[in-house]
Write a protein that binds this DNA or RNA. Structure first.
Lengths: 209, 209
DNA sequence: AATAAAATACCACTAAAGTAGTATTGAATA
DNA sequence: TATTCAATACTACTTTAGTGGTATTTTATT
């Protein structure tokens, strides 16, 4: 069964160029070219594409937002960004949103065709320049602040239980405390972390984001 | 001025194969092949290579340790890993240590030659498979497919919001639903995952550690 | 055309989480 | 020694989360 491919690109000429490329290769099932993110989003459910070749700068909703939403709906679809930009910020955003490949419009046709197969195989095609940006971005990512350090021993202990989904009274009985004490500790933790719920606290400390 | 290249590889046959490749290309100034990390480290100061082609599994000190030390001494030198391994952990470690390219021994000669020029130009040559691992490593939040698969589109979407700590009514307004609908979806999610709280659901899907 | 699954929505209820204020005790420390 | 911090604990209250039952509409599938 052929790989279903959609293209989102506002410039008509480029869109047709890409469509021709995909069609001419004979390896894909071309499902359609779209001018805007909204157009794709409307058709997405019906088409269920395997790969979406996506420009980032679009009229209306940005390609990045579009990827974020659609990737949630259907994680199997691979989003291959194809744009003229290769600035750090955009690459980073796109990948965080769920893109798994990042190519430049200046790439030659064969590379693009190969990139489409490649993302579909579960790889992440990208140029060496972009790969370097990705690496720089993620080797520099430091654990910002160690929130856990702000907490006392007891608080850390309790947060650990919190993160496992224990109830206040369960934590209390585990640690031999009163439920009210647990409640107080948690209140203090939230105050220190500047959060208001269990989930926010866990995300802040264990960095689930 | 030609690019100065060193090779570190314990297998003599492969080392000579790589040396020949580098020499035959005519693009590089081949500075020497080394059997161990220690050997390179002794000669490093004198040679001041632009690019080091480096195996990771070596007798004595590991390639990763070697990169860590030498990259500190001379950041201009680009370390291009060339190994048989492409497991997540090793890729991650090598890049953190200061490698900027990661190729497989199974690559063909031309790709390797091109990769050497590429790292020297400030790019990060790597295969699509490795790029995917890098991306996965730094975007995290890889929902366990087994559980996520059991959920419908809408449910996955809502769980994502849940995991970020949104309240029912916040999710509802984000998605343009009634709070009661959100509540119903979440109830169904809990039923499918056999859990009873938000935190348990998140841990089951996104994996707590 | 009939059926199943997904998405939507409501009511009523209980349990748990979170907010606010306060207080006591022991240990460390300025 | 006076003070701060960590740990303990209480009352009283509001908000959010989770449970159970039910029902309508749309979309896919047989």
């Amino acid at each position: 069964m052929a790989i279903g491919v959609c293209i989102v690109e506002d410039d008509r000429e480029i869109r047709e160029l890409l469509s021709d490329l995909v069609l001419a290769s004979g390896q894909f099932d071309f499902l359609g070219g779209f001018e805007t993110a909204e157009d794709l989003m409307r058709a997405f459910r019906k088409l269920q594409p395997d790969v979406v070749l996506m420009d980032l700068q679009l009229p209306g909703r940005s390609g990045i937002e579009c990827i974020r939403e659609l990737k949630l709906k259907r994680p199997e679809t691979q989003f291959l960004v194809c744009t003229v930009f290769e600035d750090n910020e955009r690459v980073y955003e796109a990948l965080l949103a769920g893109a798994t490949g990042y190519m430049l419009k200046s790439s030659d046709g064969n590379s693009l065709i190969e990139a489409i197969s490649s993302v579909h195989r579960g790889e992440s095609p990208m140029t060496g320049v972009i790969a370097r940006k990705v690496i720089e971005n993620f080797t520099k990512r430091k654990p910002s602040v160690d929130y856990a350090e702000k907490l006392t021993e007891r608080e850390r202990e309790i947060v650990e239980y919190l993160s496992r989904g224990f109830r206040y009274k369960e934590i209390a009985s585990q640690l031999g405390l009163s439920t009210e004490t647990v409640r107080t500790h948690i209140r203090n933790v939230y105050e220190k972390l500047q959060v208001g719920t269990r989930t926010e606290a866990i995300n802040k400390i264990y960095g689930n984001k």
